[in-house]
Design a protein around this nucleic acid. Sequence first.
DNA 1: CTGAAAGCGCTTACAG
DNA 2: CTGAAAGCGCTTACAG
Lengths: 347, 347
Amino acid sequence: MKRPVTIRQVARRARVAPSTVSRVLSDEGRISEETRRRVRRALAELDYYPNSAARGLVNGASGRLGIMLSRTAAYGDSHALLPELLRGIGSRAARSGYDLLLASGESMLEELSSLDRLLQGKRVDGVVLFGSGEDDPLLDRLEESSLPFVRIGRHQFRERVPSVDTDNRLAAREAVRHLAELGHARIGFVLGPRGLTSSWDRLEGYEQALREIGVEPAEMWLLEGDGLSFGALRTLSLFLGQPNPPTALIVGDDRLGIFVLRTLVELRVPVPERLALVAFNSSSIADWTIPSLTSLDVGIDQIGTASVDLLLRLCEGEAPTPRSRIVPHRLVARESTLGVKPPASAP
Amino acid sequence: MKRPVTIRQVARRARVAPSTVSRVLSDEGRISEETRRRVRRALAELDYYPNSAARGLVNGASGRLGIMLSRTAAYGDSHALLPELLRGIGSRAARSGYDLLLASGESMLEELSSLDRLLQGKRVDGVVLFGSGEDDPLLDRLEESSLPFVRIGRHQFRERVPSVDTDNRLAAREAVRHLAELGHARIGFVLGPRGLTSSWDRLEGYEQALREIGVEPAEMWLLEGDGLSFGALRTLSLFLGQPNPPTALIVGDDRLGIFVLRTLVELRVPVPERLALVAFNSSSIADWTIPSLTSLDVGIDQIGTASVDLLLRLCEGEAPTPRSRIVPHRLVARESTLGVKPPASAP
DNA sequence: CTGAAAGCGCTTACAG
DNA sequence: CTGAAAGCGCTTACAG
């Protein structure tokens, strides 16, 4: 537990004043080449690292970004997307010299106090909010605070909140187009969690795309994911039992996709032969199901990096226009639409 | 962006010295009830929050814990366990008044520099290491540093590293016992990632338990998860083609379990009728497969909270014995051993 | 019981 | 180009 080296010790060894060391460190102010060299040397020899608290105190900035993980709204796929998101955010933040402070809670109350803590005492310079629902109190709290923040996922009713998102309407249209190319025309839709704007955006894109290929969306083709946990068997068999039933289904997110898949297996409905499936997010789990799920990759790591970029601009007092950012997506075609490849011949 | 309230402003309003405010805050030193009340009032009226940098500077402690996410060793199920782990850690840390700093990287090099950054400049008071392999350089770096740290998962060859883990041997024995109770005697085993001590512990427990029920482990019953990605079909059909093949298989972790399951589906081997399956970790994905996976729940949230507890004791200079902690596990029986329930009658 | 002062490690005008 | 000084917001001996 040796005491860390301070700027004074470096100064003494380099035979200069502490302020000079500081200047060398921040690389500003004129410094003679000779002095600079001496200081650099002392810095290295002593293995100096600046004390972040001291810096923060004088700068008035913490050099930290907060990420608030909302769990109460543990909607949809946020769990599966989290690891990659954190990595994207962390890596970008580090590159800009920022540390990442994590806030979360096991109940809404804990989350709120965790966020409050984050917002007070100069702990962070800005916040990324992930996994929050539309009516999440966390969002209100952030808006009241004076700290800059970015939300992952746009908010239907709060256009002014800076956000980073996929173009979910476009993504849904791509899903429809993919299915249309495979010969499907009667395409159903399962709405994702009602509390997420993305669910509605995807629905909108789906309906629009259907019309674009000359098909009128039918009410009977629409299911609700939120209600599905109970009576899924009944709901789906009614769905498939209607006259001229859909031959394909677009599902709000991967988790829901897996649930639908499970139910179809129980109903002995072959996927994709009788019903093709497209989901959203392409989280790692989409690859693990049987058959694997065709899904729209939202590029969660890019969402992470883009949100840090946006947040840092806000931290610097800029007011970027547009206030929000769109990250490109990509359809990943898998077995739930393409079919299962014949098994490699076993010996 | 209003300036935050400082202790001086509170002092002025309460008509006392800053030091008195500080004493009220920390609740130490004799303070008259009257003064205390006045200060409390001013504190509340001004909505004061202590500046964490200033505190850190004088205390010499940051009030932060670091969590290093090793990804290079993106072994096994660590992804699936991460969200719950973070929540457990975060919640416990918050309760003890600590913030959580996240370090990660997209390559080994980035991870190392991320860790270095964490260890320097008094950023954190201690570190939790998660997801590291046995030969991970991160571990060396942590051992060289003077900061206290705890590793999640014990290390076979470094008994002195404080760690928190499940009793994997015991867990494996429970898996065997579960299968034995269902009538299985010929039980195979798929070794998890070689780079994880847990894999070997589980193997050990498996072999011991087998002997306990009077069955001699056969070499032919043992498979290696690491080599399975290529030629899984061939390997598994050979495995099942041997005379008197196993009727059950214990698999190193959930991810591997899913992979094996997939392969069995392709081979048209019914699970659990012809081959029952038990996996480890009981991450959320174990619930989503078809059939769902019987798995040993390692209680990742408890591992999280226990590691914070242990770490905080280390931070306070204690040398707890034992240096490591064991967290209880629990077998969660699902369809891959119990069989699929007959589908509820559909209308 | 309370206050004035020093100091934590840094940065940044201000002189020179 | 370089140094001495003040100050960021807090805590903690030291007086009284």
